[in-house]
Design a protein around this nucleic acid. Sequence first.
DNA 1: CTGGGGAGGGGGCCC
DNA 2: GGGGCCCCCTCCCCA
Length: 551
Amino acid sequence: MEMLPRLRLSEAMKTGKVAMSPGEDGLIGIPFPEHSNELLSHLNDQRRTGLLCDLTLTSRGARYPTHRSVMAAVSLYFRRLFGAEEGGEGGGGGGFSVCQLDCVSPDALDALLEFAYTATLTIPSSGMRDVLRGAQLLGIQCVADACRDILGETGEAEGEAKQQGGRCADREADGAVEKLSRRKTDRKKVRRVGLHHVNSSPVNPASPVSHPSPASDSLRSLPSTRPLSPEQDELRPQPGQNGDPRAIRGAALNGGHLHWLQDPRIAQPPPTADKLFEDDDMEAIIDGATMGNTTLPASATDRAATATVGGGGGGRKRKSQTPQQCPVCQKIIHGAGKLPRHMRTHTGEKPFQCSACGVRFTRNDKLKIHMRKHTGERPYPCPHCPARFLHSYDLKNHLSLHSGTRPFECPLCHKAFAREDHLQRHRKGHSCLELRTRRPRGDAGCREPPDPLEAFQAHSSGFLPRSALDGGGSGPPLMFDVERERSLALLAQIGPQRMAAYPEFFLRGLRESDAEDPGRRSESPAVQRDRWRDEAEEENGEEEEEAEEEE
DNA sequence: CTGGGGAGGGGGCCC
DNA sequence: GGGGCCCCCTCCCCA
């Protein structure tokens, strides 16, 4: 999707920081990192307003106007489906299609569409499995991988999933339905399962599906809910939910997320799009994922019951309670009102803009700190020298230089650091690999020098996920198997400043150690030192045992 | 490789 | 409960 315009530039420009294709003398590729985001954003706007939508997906009555090209780009299933069409009568060009995907739950389909158009997968934790199934069925591999990763499914399950997803994509649509539906029915009593392409040709060229003007549509940010033509309205379940499509969605949800549907704001004047996203969608997500340690029962059934408590007649939604679990990365967020802040790390939303330089931030307090750069304010002066600092923590670090204290000591090479992160960097790297073997290698006379990789693994065990150390042999992969190289390349390309715009699961593998043991993140330096010391002693103990055995 | 600065993100406290 | 403010931790980048 990334387009690199080729320009002939002067030699002087060639020396700049522009990417140049090797071997193409004079042709320089200038990356426009924002282009793909902007393109996607515009497409998403078009989807929301129904503009140029030439494909409607339906799931149990819910309708999702979308674009064939986008769906074909993200979904192997649609790629093959439309590819087949193009070979036939459709010519791939036009016509309005309706694709019925009852085997994908509306919420999952909504999430997958949101992913397709925003590169961000935002789903309630309870819906993860539905999204996984949907991604498998539609052949959206990266999402399926991410869901499996988050769910911690085993390789066996992964294999099964791939098999399933692959089959789905490979088959003729209708043929695929039956077997899949049986499988799914066995597991989840889905009343009606169908991956059924209702009409790959125009539904009715004389009366194409029309989308009402979105500008005044109070459901503007809920593209899934646009009314369709009377013919397609026949697809709806029986009305009786005030005609609100969200209610229709809810009818298909078995109560899993009824609180999504009972939003009292349905009858309220439409907020602005931004506000709607922040307050409406976000709260729906948050409420859907609210999972306090004690506030939310474990089972989906209980969750539904909780969600509907006091809300049977459209009563007040149950407000978020602390702690809450992020529906995207499953991280537990402590503190009232902190989840919206956290969610912005996934959505990439940066509502706070510096009036001086235009830089945007996800948080107001970060903007405030940033403004100090413009005002020159450095509120943290060092009492021992003229140095002043923007952050209190910088001053704290700085003070350790004056005091000479280096409280962070490597348990292996005993090198001390003034900053904890420097010690971590030291441990992550190869800095003390030579020193860590306190016993000289030639000591025993017969010991083979340690395998550098093995030494690194041992040394890094406190930082890297086991899966990374094992080379991915067991446990979840460090990153998505297929996407890893591309992900790393992309991360390198987009730079850290824009990483926030990408879903956390994209980066999750890089921080998997945190996920494996969340407590480590909050370990005090003393505790961490003790842990490292224990690890080092264990390592040394093993070495000594080995030496004794050799003797 | 290391020291230092800056920034992103989470948690606590308070209003 | 939400948000502001602050502290802390971690990571990245640069010299």
